[in-house]
Nucleic acid binder design. Structure first.
Length: 825
DNA sequence: CCGCTACGGGG
DNA sequence: GGGTACGTAGCGG
């Protein structure tokens, strides 16, 4: 007997499924929640129907509209007819539009009905047909994930692994004020795999959760200290599922688990015909396709791949440019991985050092858990601001976050969301001539001392708000006649923005910026490192990143609210403001070392001078525009990126605490030989730590000499590249393909997915023709490694110090370049 | 110059 | 599955 009940839950996830009930297919919304006392709750809601809009051709008479409605209602697809039609009116980019809202029985039928009506002559356009059903649901019902709701409904009996399953319906779910989160069970895991006989097997799995639990499962005949040993890979799989079930996590976290660990678990499950059941719904894990990456979904739990979030969102604000678990954990937590290289894991495994690998694996789970405890609160706050589930937030880019927020706000404001651009339109936008971006004050190259960094707080959002930049306020008719536009003309352009009506996008952004200012005020009163302070900090971070992304969204080719003119207007005003500040600095006699878009580096004598400058500037800035002082750096080098063309952000600084801040130098990828990676690292260190460009040059010359005289180990010359399709399918024979073909001719197996290692050897012809599998190569081409590997890697750093390629190649001694030359006194 | 191909994270 | 969502760089031709 179902019993009626009311409860409060914090919503962790929303999803939907199609179920068969009495021979009829029916969609059901599934909400995952958590009560304050730690119970897992599944809420079922069958009261929401999918729909989309069509806009009849303007000018149709009322009877024409009635006929149209009748024709739509008579449509039939596989026995299904539209449920009903409502007439409604919404605003589309500032103008009212009459619409028909067509309700459909099944979510997957929406595109089918839309496909039929899209060619009808009495229909002008269809809208909001591409919005996933569960997203439609949360927007329309005003539900915000990671917030508390009250649920009225019937508790039902269930075989599933939830503490409570409840059926609710329309009006049964109400949003409450946000409060502290309940305590979630968070389980981190990691796998180790070993390749043997061309096959990859899971050999170790480790877990750690936020309730003091840890576990390692190892494939080994004998007992391994600190681990549970099992005899087969299938046993690892079973033990893995058992552990998840017993620990019953709300959130499962890992690092790169969408693209690695869950794929491997899935393959293993297939190999042993063992269904991979990890969810409270007792169903098999599924991959949900999301463009380039598929996301592993586990029913009734939230799988968060921290790497996905770091790659899309957090990475931009880290100083490391390499987003490995080791580097990210070092930067955020101050602890890195066990010092064990990839190849060493294999060696350790072959050497039967099971304990060593267990420890290594468990350390990764620990780092992942600690990282999750740091990062999840950020994801949760972004969920609250954007209205998207943590599962989606962790996998979205900046543009998607802005887009879904705008879609939600559009619904609240009775605005129609513009359609996504079609593929051809995206391509057209992508190919369009780039517009002028931020202003770059060409760096004074070399080494400088005492540099103060200033930047505008949220320059582009402030401009968007101050100048009311929105597609529907652009060159509006209402201001044209009255000539009110004069006060809001884009610098250097013939466009203006409305001064009478607030635009949709600026309104949304202003709300974010105002909320952030309130939070910033609260933060001043709160004690650092308390729960309250950290929460405020994460909330302001969420508000900041979404507000800051709004400019990029106007110019993002896939954008629904794409407006190249708006994007151009924002950068035009941005250039005006930064130039104004640079002009002021110069007038006051400061040397401007470098400036880019919203920031500038000034040479100052001390902090006091920097603060005085800041005060003077801020007195002169209008409205919400504000310059901030970031830090005073002891020294730094500035480098022009690509010479001639756009100057890139490349600089390295030593801050007041002695930390090195590097921008734009790193990133030599794995398809480069070790010799190139190592040379670049040595060059950077010589400059930043020893502050000796001449030593850096000597290092490069030294490596080149060694390459020429055959003194470099072959191992350091190997280039690793993956073969991503069957070899016969390659149209272009790059070096890695040529090497793979040779390996195959010699009887070795190179499949799709193998990584081929090769060396470029001496001889004539193209680079490809001289690529030999590493194990067959008995010589190497010094010129290739000098010109295509070592010099380009070193030049990334040294180009800015005035060196040219020839300087490394000259036979004669290069003139001594002293450090003094680069230090501005 | 264009178009194809790969990387990223993980092991 | 109301699905098909990156940005950049090297190399061959």
């Amino acid at each position: 007997m179902p019993s009626e009940k009311s409860m409060k839950i914090c919503i962790l996830d929303v999803n939907y499924e199609v179920e068969e009930r009495g021979g009829v297919e029916e969609q059901v919304i599934k909400i995952l929640g958590k009560t304050k006392d730690g119970k897992s709750v599944l809420v079922l809601d069958r009261s929401f129907d999918p729909y989309f809009y069509v806009e009849p051709k303007p000018g149709l008479s009322e009877s024409d509209i009635e006929t149209l409605k009748g024709r739509i209602l008579e449509l039939e697809i596989e026995g299904q007819k539209p449920k009903k039609i409502e007439e409604t009116e919404k605003n589309f980019l500032g103008k009212p539009v009459k619409l028909l809202k067509i309700f459909i029985n099944l979510p997957s039928d929406v595109p089918k009905f839309r496909d039929i009506v899209k060619d009808w002559s009495d229909i002008r356009e269809e809208y909001e047909h591409g919005i996933p059903f569960y997203k439609r649901y949360v927007v329309d019902r005003g539900i915000v994930p990671m917030n508390w709701v009250s649920i009225e409904g019937d508790v039902i009996k269930s075989e599933l692994d939830f503490d409570i399953v409840i059926e609710s319906g329309k009006g049964g779910i109400k949003l409450l004020e946000d409060k502290e989160y309940p305590k979630f069970n968070i389980l981190a895991f990691d796998l180790e795999l070993i390749q043997k006989d061309g096959e990859e097997n899971i050999v170790v799995a480790s877990f750690m959760d936020n309730r003091g639990f840890k576990k390692v499962i190892v494939l080994a005949k004998n007992k391994v200290r600190g681990a549970k040993n099992v005899l087969t890979e299938q046993d690892i799989l079973k033990e893995f599922m058992d552990t998840v079930k017993k620990r019953d996590p709300d959130i499962i976290v890992g690092y790169n688990t969408d693209r690695f660990d869950f794929i491997k678990l899935g393959e293993s499950s297939e190999k042993y015909k063992t269904p991979l059941i990890l969810g409270r719904d007792k169903k098999h894990m599924v991959f949900r396709r999301r463009g380039r990456i598929s996301a592993a979904r586990i029913g009734g739990r939230v799988h968060i791949d921290l790497y996905d979030f770091i790659e899309h969102i957090l990475g931009a604000s880290l100083s490391t440019e390499v987003l490995t678990l080791d580097r990210v954990a070092k930067e955020l937590l101050g602890i890195g991985k066990e010092n064990l290289r990839w190849k060493d894991i294999e060696k350790a495994w072959k050497g039967r050092e099971f304990e060593k690998i267990s420890k290594y694996c468990l350390k990764d789970s620990r780092l992942t858990l600690k990282l999750a405890e740091y990062i999840l609160p950020q994801i949760f706050e972004i969920s609250r601001v954007s209205g998207q589930t943590p599962f989606d937030v962790a996998r979205m880019g900046y543009s998607q976050l802005v887009e879904w927020l705008l879609i939600r706000k559009a619904h609240e404001e009775n605005e129609l969301a513009p359609n996504r651009p079609k593929y051809d339109e995206v391509m057209r936008r992508r190919r369009a001539v780039p517009y002028i971006g931020g202003y770059v004050h060409i760096p004074k190259e070399g080494i400088h001392e005492n540099i103060a960094l200033f930047d505008f707080a949220a320059l582009y959002p402030s401009i968007t708000i101050t100048h009311n930049i929105s597609p529907e306020t652009l060159d509006c008719m209402c201001c044209k006649k009255k000539r009110e536009n004069k006060s809001n003309m884009v610098p250097g352009q013939e466009h203006y923005y409305c001064r009478r009506h607030k635009g949709f996008v600026p309104k949304v952004i202003e709300e974010l910026v105002k909320k952030r200012m309130e939070i910033k005020e609260k933060m001043k009163k709160a004690k650092p490192n308390t729960v309250e302070y950290n929460y405020l900090c994460n909330r302001q971070y969420a508000l900041k990143i979404i507000a800051n992304a709004s400019y990029g969204y106007y110019g993002y080719p896939g954008s629904r609210w794409y407006s190249r003119v708006c994007a151009e207007s924002i950068t035009a005003w941005g250039r005006m403001y930064i130039k104004k500040v640079i002009g002021m600095a110069e007038k006051m006699g400061y040397e401007v070392i470098y400036g880019d878009t919203d920031s500038l580096f000034l040479k100052v004598r001390n902090k006091k001078e920097a603060k005085e400058f800041l005060n003077d500037v801020n007195k002169s800035l209008p409205g919400v525009m504000e310059l901030d002082f970031r830090d005073l750096y002891k020294s730094g080098i500035f480098v022009l990126g690509k010479t001639g063309v756009a100057a890139k952000k490349r600089y390295a600084l030593i801050d007041s605490k002695g930390n090195i801040v590097i921008r734009g130098f790193e990133k030599v990828r794995r398809d480069w030989a070790n010799i190139a990676k190592d040379t670049q690292e040595m060059v950077l260190k010589a400059i930043l730590i020893e502050r000796s460009p001449s030593k850096a040059v000597k290092i490069v010359r030294n490596i080149i000499q060694k390459l020429k005289s055959n003194k470099i180990m072959m191992d350091d010359l190997i280039i690793y590249t993956q073969i991503t399709k069957p070899i016969s399918e390659y149209e272009q024979i790059g070096p890695h393909v040529a090497a793979a073909k040779k390996a195959v001719e010699r009887g070795r197996i190179v499949k799709e997915g193998s990584t081929i290692s090769y060396i470029i050897t001496k001889g004539t012809g193209s680079i490809s023709s001289r690529a030999e599998p590493a194990e067959d190569a008995d010589n190497y081409d010094p010129d290739y490694y000098i010109n295509n590997q070592v010099i380009p890697a070193a030049m990334r750093v040294l180009a800015g110090l005035g060196y040219r390629e020839e300087d490394f190649l000259k036979k004669e001694k290069i003139e001594q370049i002293s450090l003094e030359k680069y230090i501005k006194k």
